[in-house]
Nucleic acid binder design. Sequence first.
DNA 1: CGTTAATCGAGACGGTACGTCCTGTCTTCGG
DNA 2: CCGAAGACAGGACGTACCGTCTCGATTAACG
Lengths: 209, 209, 209, 209
Amino acid sequence: MWGVTATTPDAAPVDQERKAPGRPRSPRADEAIIEAVLDLLTEGNPAESISIESVAARAGVGKATIYRRWSNKEALLVDAVASVKGEPPRIKGESVRDDLVALLRPIAVPAHSRAAKIMPCLWSEIHRSPELHRCVQKISEPRRELMREVLRRGIGSGELRADLDLDLVLVMLMGPLISQTMTGWNPNLDRATLPERLVDMLWPAIARP
Amino acid sequence: MWGVTATTPDAAPVDQERKAPGRPRSPRADEAIIEAVLDLLTEGNPAESISIESVAARAGVGKATIYRRWSNKEALLVDAVASVKGEPPRIKGESVRDDLVALLRPIAVPAHSRAAKIMPCLWSEIHRSPELHRCVQKISEPRRELMREVLRRGIGSGELRADLDLDLVLVMLMGPLISQTMTGWNPNLDRATLPERLVDMLWPAIARP
Amino acid sequence: MWGVTATTPDAAPVDQERKAPGRPRSPRADEAIIEAVLDLLTEGNPAESISIESVAARAGVGKATIYRRWSNKEALLVDAVASVKGEPPRIKGESVRDDLVALLRPIAVPAHSRAAKIMPCLWSEIHRSPELHRCVQKISEPRRELMREVLRRGIGSGELRADLDLDLVLVMLMGPLISQTMTGWNPNLDRATLPERLVDMLWPAIARP
Amino acid sequence: MWGVTATTPDAAPVDQERKAPGRPRSPRADEAIIEAVLDLLTEGNPAESISIESVAARAGVGKATIYRRWSNKEALLVDAVASVKGEPPRIKGESVRDDLVALLRPIAVPAHSRAAKIMPCLWSEIHRSPELHRCVQKISEPRRELMREVLRRGIGSGELRADLDLDLVLVMLMGPLISQTMTGWNPNLDRATLPERLVDMLWPAIARP
DNA sequence: CGTTAATCGAGACGGTACGTCCTGTCTTCGG
DNA sequence: CCGAAGACAGGACGTACCGTCTCGATTAACG
């Protein structure tokens, strides 16, 4: 799973699996480095304040050991983030509305998992790095797909309008939460209840007339 | 207009705008500094590559003259950008829907001005300091207030429901655009038409039944 | 007494004494500036650590007020030092040996006067500045002349050899004390008793055989 | 020979000169830095005008590489000077008087070497820090010890009095020369002949009666 | 079992930029 | 015109990281 962007020419196809000569890379170092990045992020350090040197020190590892695996800070961040991806929340599958709310709530109240604590630290870097951006997209895609399925189920059951643009609905539900997370919460809007208010507000627009 | 985040304790005491003692700050320096930042940005330098030193050199100004006005690079960048973002778009005041779309469009399609090239570079920096965040809020507040006024007008005219939570509506309209700008545009959603689709989609939820 | 090196074109000869137009320079500022320099030196700050800014702040004076009077730090230091010159010690005039010891002791034990505390701070600057050097020479000249007179008295009374090179004797008496002050005291040599040990040691070389 | 005042904790623990971990410091950098300082000094730049930055540029070295070795400018200057002062002069060992004169002369007439141009610039800096002072002491100690040995030899051979305080004699011989070097030469005293005049003058006081 | 070769922690390398401080000049106001 | 206050361009300071490099010491598989 490591090495998504790593420098290693581990492109040894499949067939021959020639073992590289010399001392093999230590998997303990891999772990320690990723773990150090994640620790630093979880402690609330903004992504751009994380220096390779601090990661090396925290991981008890030489700088070269990092640069041997990742060509720069961005690549390291990408792999570190890729390694967390908490599982998407369980949904009950009974009510479309409740399922949507259940899927939205973790975005608004990101208190529980480590992934949740890390995500906000990354917004800063996403714009600098298309790579990181794709990575974050990939991580969040399962959740989005889950929402699409819930919507399709609602359409299938006749609860929702059949002509919905799923992506549009998605962005109308998640966008407000994401923007609030990034630009700071409007004090007039309660984090905890915003997901259900969003769904309820949008309901007349998506429900079958 | 400069100095939104500037360090100056421009605490006009109470009474009469007492003139500060000593030599006043040179407006020429203000201009030269902002202009230098803007030049560097429009030349294609990525925002994070812009150093205070390069700005000082370009502006023909001492570093201290910059630090006297802005406490760090982000503050300077923000003010530079703020100086370039035109005033909120004129609205016709005829149709609530058209006014909303007109106010939203520049967020989705910031294409023309110099600000367009610059703004995206700044999301990166927003999360660092609460101060910077407040600054950005302040800059965008006029546009939000304008939208609130449009909504209030619609309520007054009976076009919209009277029990709307204006902030909630605001976040449902702007959030999707902002999040798309920040996290990258979903290729299934057209930037140009998204504003009107958002308004139209939300219309059944906010229009008087 | 001020203005030994000052910039002022106070070379208005004598005859005409045309009063300068405008507000006359405040003598209070003169005093405050010199006093500030002296304070800073007395507090043990080495001469090279004294900045014009610190002097201005301490004196409650604008920097320009200093530069109007002295062209640079060196000139200011020179005048400050020139203003102190404690009077040379009283000598009894009974014994040549005792008089020499009395004149040497303040060099070795510079505890009393302000001048004594300031002098060591200046060694640093003396080499940079011929001007300051001349100034210090002038200040210490009376003491040296006094010693020469004591020696001449001894020669006249037949107590000392007639063929003495007074300057050589002087440098053999003062040199060791000055060098100890500058390069740090050899712990094997007691500051308090060194003057008399020097004189006694040298006595066979200068006394009439 | 480098690093007399260097920052390195070359605390060889106890036993065996354990090699420090990590890449060893480059001797080429040491040389280049010292050489750059010496070049700048010999080109006539006054000592206080030499900046770490100019040294780094001239040596083709990063500033950190300098600060890793010396904690400040004076320490660097001292080591640079120390590297250039030749070993103490060879003494013939025949006559005590001639040996003393031979050892004193380089203090009075430091004319030939590069050291000659440099040393006077350093008195300025000596008073700043005790550390620097100790360093200078250490550098000059060999010469002083050599003089003590000459004096002991004279005592052993019966040429000199047995009850001499060697430190006192030392300071009486070197002090006048040092003070003349530092405070400027009395025009009545010839630099070239002062050493022998000092020894001859003091001779009756130190020779066995 | 020794050789070979890439790894490891450690830290020095040449650089770039930081944010602070001071210099000597200038520009404002009020006395 | 002088006073204080303080902004101005310039430049050095000492620090922090960057990404590269060089050490001696491991740590495998190959021969």
